[in-house]
Design a protein around this nucleic acid. Structure first.
Length: 281
DNA sequence: TGGAAGCCTGGTGT
DNA sequence: AACACCAGGCTTC
């Protein structure tokens, strides 16, 4: 038997709290200042340490692989310093950077991300987390902790059924999750392939799913499909845009999103998260 | 074609 | 204590 447990250190500013538990992902558990979760079937723990973070993996000891999936998940190729420099004159972005420097856009599994944000409709962080974590437990348990599950496949969720999803507390969102699972099983949508389509086409495809409108589609595009120009507009970001950039209350969320995508381009997803955190907390 | 009601349900405020 | 009201949105009318 191998030990299966390895660790490492990443010397880059990463704010674990805002990145992992700030509303992009809902499956990280904090215990003794350690953030535990599952990335690509590998159980990982992160902890803030000195200028960066340290990590442990528990069911995989392939160092190259772990380094690679962590770098991908935490978007380590994105240069926050340059991001800040590009937006030096933007007071709203700078004031948020002061507080949340190290907040990063995650690269999550698209299926898990899609289900999570379908659950987010008219909900709140606590409730979404409960919903997502109970769905997660439909999947395979791979470790001793409460959080150590592989997120269930579309087929598994479909088999589990709408009624039981309702009973987990999803409410009116349950049939939406089922519709998403169905469209993926029937290959009407291939989430992985969306990475290689344009922003507009990928977004339209996602919005074919019942319960997925512009906001949820943008979240999935930004937080799991690597579309850095995606800019989800919820009521908080709406308020932030109107206040900080002096925009009219009369603009609807679609128009605000268009405005932001034009203005921030490939910084969009980062700008959105920084504005979101700054207005919420 | 825009705008508001309705949807599940847990949490918060009164 | 019980009750209204709302929440990181979408669909329907």
């Amino acid at each position: 038997m191998t030990k299966n447990q390895i660790s490492g250190y990443i010397d880059t500013p990463i704010d674990l709290e805002s990145s992992l538990c700030g509303g992009q992902s809902f499956r990280w558990m904090i215990k003794n200042k350690r953030f535990r979760g599952v990335i690509r079937n590998v159980i990982i723990e992160f902890q803030q340490k000195d200028r960066g973070i340290c990590w442990n993996s528990y069911n995989n000891d392939d160092l190259n692989f772990i380094n690679q999936i962590i770098a991908e998940y935490l978007d380590l190729n994105f240069d926050l310093k340059k991001f800040s420099e590009r937006n030096l004159k933007d007071i709203a972005i700078q004031s948020s950077l002061d507080k949340y420097y190290g907040l990063r856009i995650l690269n999550q599994d698209p299926w898990e991300c899609l289900v999570s944000f379908i659950c987010s409709a008219a909900s709140n962080l606590n409730k979404i987390t409960k919903n997502v974590q109970s769905i997660m437990k439909i999947g395979e348990k791979i470790g001793p902790e409460e959080i150590d599950y592989i997120f269930p496949s579309p087929q598994k969720i479909l088999t589990f059924g709408e009624l039981k999803l309702r009973n987990l507390g999803l409410g009116f969102r349950a049939p939406y999750v089922i519709d998403a699972a169905l469209k993926i099983i029937e290959e009407k949508i291939n989430l992985q392939s969306l990475k290689f389509s344009s922003y507009d086409i990928s977004k339209k495809k996602l919005m074919m799913i019942n319960g997925v409108g512009e906001k949820i589609a943008d979240c999935v595009l930004a937080f799991s499909l690597n579309f850095s120009n995606a800019f989800p507009v919820d009521r908080w970001v709406r308020r932030s845009l109107i206040n900080q950039y002096n925009l009219s209350e009369k603009l609807n969320n679609h128009e605000l999103g268009d405005w932001a995508r034009k203005r921030f381009k490939d910084d969009g997803s980062y700008v959105q998260q920084y504005l979101f955190h700054n207005i919420k907390n």
